[in-house]
Every structure is written in C-alpha cells, then in structure tokens.
Design a protein around this nucleic acid. Structure first.
Lengths: 222, 222
DNA sequence: CAAAATTATGAGATCATCTCAGCCTATGAG
DNA sequence: CTCATAGGCTGAGATGATCTCATAATTTTG
C-alpha cells in the first residue's frame, strides 16, 4: 500500500486525482448520496484504492474542503490588495465574499454537514480563522489610521459583516438571482454610519450657546 | 398498519411519543449517528413500528424540526407582543433570537444536515418564512408609523438582522460564552443609524466651520 | 366470544462503507 | 533475459445501517 505521508510526485498526483474526482462527486450528489465507488470510477481506480489514500469518506470530504478554504482565502487577499482605502477594501471584500458564497453555496452546505452537533473540529475552526483574518486586518488597519473607531470589540463588526453577507447569499440564491443587488452597498453604508469616524461631529453645546447669543444680538440690533 | 393520516387520539399519541424519543436521540447523537433502533427502544416500541408512523429516518427528522420551528416562532411572537415601540420590539426580537439560537444550535446544525445541495425543500422554506415574518411585520409597521424609512427593500435589513445574529450565535457559542454581550445593542444601534428616521440630520463639518467663522467675526466686532 | 380489522413485531433484504489477502507491475541485479 | 522483490492496486466480502413485510398480537365489532 502507498505510504500514508509520502510526498513523492506519484503519491501527490494520485491524491490530487482522487481529490478532483471527489470534489465533482460531492458537488453533484451531496455528502450522503455521494458514493465512494463513484469517486473511484471517475478517478479510474478501484474503490479500495481510494481508501488507501483517504482513510474514510469523511476524511476525503475534509480534504476537499481544505482546498476550497485555501482558494477562497487567497482570492480574498488578491481582491483586497487591489484597493488602499480601508472602506474600499471592505467593499471589495464584501463583494468578493458575497459572490463567492453564492457561487459555492453547495460547498458551504457540505461543510455544515460535517459539523458535529455541540462541537466544531479544530481543523475547520483554523481554516475559518485564517479566512476571517482578512477582514480583521483591514478593520484593524482602519482603526490605526483613524478611519474606524474602536468602540466595539473587533468580533462585533466582524459578525455583522460576515453574518449579513452569508445570510444574504442564502436568500439571494433562494430567489435564484445571480447578482448581488444592494446588499453590499447597504452593508458598507451601515458600517460607515456605525463605525466610521469621518461622519460629521455632532454640534457642540458650547457652539450652540455662542450661536444663540450671536443671533440674539443680530436680531436685537436690526 | 396504522392509517397514515389518522387523527385519532391513539395515533396522535403514538406519533408524539415517537417524536419525543427521536428529538432526544437526534440531539444526543446527531443525524448520522442517530439509530432508528434507539428511537424505538426509547419509545418502548419495535424499530419496525417507527417506520409505520414515519416513512424514513429523514421524514422523522423533518417532523422533529417542524415542531422546533413552530415553537420558535410562537416564542418570538410572545416576546415581541410585550413591547410597543418598533425599535424596542426589534431589540426584544434580536435578544430572543440570539438566545434561542445559541441554546438550540444543535438543532440548526441538524436542519442544515437535511438541506440538499442546490435546493431547499418547500416545507423548510415555508417554516423559515413564517419565522422571519415576525421581523417583517415589525419593520413594516415601523415604516407605516414613520419610525423607519423604506429606502431599501425589506429583505436587506432583514438579512442584516438575522444574518448578524445567527453568525454571532456561532461565534459566541464557539467561545463558550453563555450570554450575548454587546451584539444586540450594537445591531440595534446600527439599525437606528441606518434605517431610523428620528436620527437628527448630522450637521456638516463645512457648515460648522462657516458658522464658527461668522460667530468669531460677530463676537470680535462687538 | 368469534371474526374482522387494526396495530406491532423483528428477521432478513438491501445497500452503503470499509478491510485485507492476494494480484499486478516496475525496477534493477545477476 | 530472468527473476526476486517491494510497493501499489484490486474487488470480494465483513460489517452494520435503513427499510420491508409476513406474521403475530391486540383491539374493535357484530
């Protein structure tokens, strides 16, 4: 049998070949209805051989998801790097996230299927962390540069950001729309109003009093 | 075999008895690892009998979820009815939703497990619709009474509302906190700033500067 | 209380994941 | 060229789950 943790070209090629077939089968049938025999068939190998490279059907699915998260995170970084102002980076990230999630919703549903009630496995948690770090870095840089205030702990705006987009992705794809309409702009606008520092300072009591006195004088002198 | 759609007390009692057992088993083991034989054992009947009342394991799970959604929706309506101002109703609903979702996260994960990639079954969609209608009614009443503006289609604030709360529920229970801290207040505050009509129009920095210069001049000329 | 109708049973049919004894094939030493 | 050998591959079968259905048990009816 092939060595478990070999990194020889042959071994890696096989793993990749199986992974591609698995990806297709999982997407087409979902986790439950996906047959390991079918994965083998599409990879052109016997069912048993699949099990030499991935111990269980679940492990195979996890490997597929790992690649998915890696690609998603890389794509997010690429997109963000094309902008410089924090608020525009957020807008770009929001648009990228929404579009990706709509496109790959089946993947997220598969990921949910692996989640055990009452716990999240460490590997999944780490992948998610690496992904949301993209948001965190933008927001923290924004705080440092004075674009956002830091009245709230970081996770609160982060939850609003990803939560809104993920939920929207579901409703958008439910109504079979392809393009996000309004969601991203609305979210960014809510962010500007809630966390932005460039929003106009409310007028100070001091100035109001001075203005009133000045107007009084003007009115009485005319 | 018992009639499929009987409503006789005996039939209903059996169905309920099986449902309670199933609920416990699904919560304890998750969908995959739950054994129909165990459901039968806990209900004190044979495995085969379970299948007389629910055609498949999936149908059994769906029945359990149906009750869950009904209870959740009723609880939301009860909570909301204890307030009158739209914004306070929203706050109460947000708090109720967050608390419930944290408590019953295993249920939501089970629900996700039934979701087929590429589609949502009509029954689930209807249940979800009935639940989010609670939010919709509050927001629409708020628009009618002038408390909220209707610049955005309803589904945009709705997605932000439920999306933020659901995502927060995940991160909160991930870090094993029991009580929501800040999430609800922050969300409601973002709502007020983004959709509220009672917010005073912020005075522009430009105008503030002009006024200050004018007052300076007036004060010095006297 | 016997017959009929309804409800319950659990052994086994079916079909999935996963295992493993043996088969195949590439390589290179003699 | 032959043959030994080691690593890779195979697929029949072990295992264990859902679901079926002939039969048994129970309840209702006349």
């Amino acid at each position: 049998m092939p060595e478990d943790n070999s990194t020889s070209p042959k071994n890696l090629a096989r793993r990749d070949q199986i992974l591609r077939a698995a990806r297709d089968v999982f997407i087409e049938f979902g986790f439950e209805d996906a047959r390991v025999a079918e994965v083998g068939r599409r990879a052109g190998i016997a069912e048993g051989t699949v099990y030499l490279y991935y111990k269980t059907k679940t492990a195979l699915m996890e490997a597929v998801l790992s690649v998915f998260w890696q690609d998603l995170t890389q794509g997010a970084r690429d997109t963000v790097s094309r902008h410089s102002a924090p608020i525009e980076q957020l807008r770009a990230l929001a648009d990228y996230h929404l579009t990706s999630v709509i496109r790959d919703l089946p993947f997220l549903d598969l990921a949910a299927k692996l989640r055990k009630a009452y716990s999240v496995d460490p590997a999944t948690r780490d992948r998610l962390r690496a992904y949301v770090a993209v948001f965190d870095e933008i927001f923290e840089a924004g705080i440092a540069s004075g674009a956002f205030d830091d009245a709230q702990p970081l996770w609160i705006p982060r939850d609003m950001f990803y939560g809104t987009l993920e939920y929207s992705a579901r409703t958008i794809s439910l109504r079979k729309a392809k393009r996000p309409t309004g969601t991203v702009d609305n979210l960014i606008s809510a962010f500007e109003r809630t966390y932005g520092t460039t929003r106009p300072e409310p007028i100070s009591k001091d100035l109001v009093e001075r203005l009133e006195r000045a107007v009084d004088r003007l009115e009485s002198s005319s």
